[in-house]
Amino acid sequence: RGSRYIGRVFVLETPLSQGAGKLSVDDTVWRITGPDLSAGTKIRVTEIDGARLVVEAAADETAEA
């Protein structure tokens, strides 16, 4: 199910701290891993690791809701 999010860009609602955080997508809250980033940062989903989405900071692209 999470594989459909690979490549999509979102905005962090809460910070990604110590490599872990959460991301709300549609009606689901996903656990995410990646570099520490502040709330409001655009992120791109790069892969799935078990039940977690792996993310990175995204270039200036349009984020999805």
Rank of each mutant, 00 (worst) to 15 (best):
L37C: 11
L37M: 15
T33R: 12
D26I: 05
I43G: 06
Y5F: 10
Y5N: 08
V9N: 13
K22W: 07
K22P: 07
W30S: 02
A59T: 14
A65P: 15
G2Y: 00
E13W: 06
L12V: 05
I32A: 04
I6P: 01
I48T: 07
G2R: 00
S17Y: 08
A51I: 06
A39S: 15
T41R: 10
L53I: 02
G19D: 10
V54D: 04
D26R: 09
D26Q: 09
T33L: 05
G40N: 09
A63T: 10
V54G: 07
R4N: 12
W30C: 00
V11S: 14
I32G: 06
P15D: 05
V25L: 05
R44Q: 15
E13F: 07
G40V: 08
I32T: 06
A59C: 05
S3Q: 13
P35S: 11
V25W: 01
V11P: 12
S3C: 04
G2S: 01
R1I: 00
R52F: 07
D26V: 06
L23G: 11
A58P: 07
G50H: 01
S24V: 13
E47V: 03
I43K: 02
S38A: 15
R52Y: 07
A57C: 11
W30T: 00
V29N: 06
A57T: 14
G50A: 03
D60E: 08
L37D: 03
G21P: 03
E56Q: 15
P15T: 06
A20D: 11
I48E: 01
S38N: 15
I6M: 01
G7T: 02
D27Q: 08
L23Q: 09
V54N: 09
Y5H: 15
L12P: 00
G34D: 03
G34L: 01
S24A: 11
Y5I: 00
V25D: 02
A58V: 03
E47A: 14
K42Y: 07
S3E: 13
E64M: 08
E64V: 06
F10Y: 15
V11N: 13
A57G: 13
A65H: 13
R8H: 10
L37H: 09
G40C: 06
L16N: 15
E47W: 02
T14L: 10
F10A: 08
W30A: 00
V25E: 02
A59S: 14
G21I: 03
A51N: 15
V45W: 01
E61S: 11
P15A: 11
S17G: 10
V45L: 03
I43D: 07
V45K: 01
V25Q: 03
R52G: 05
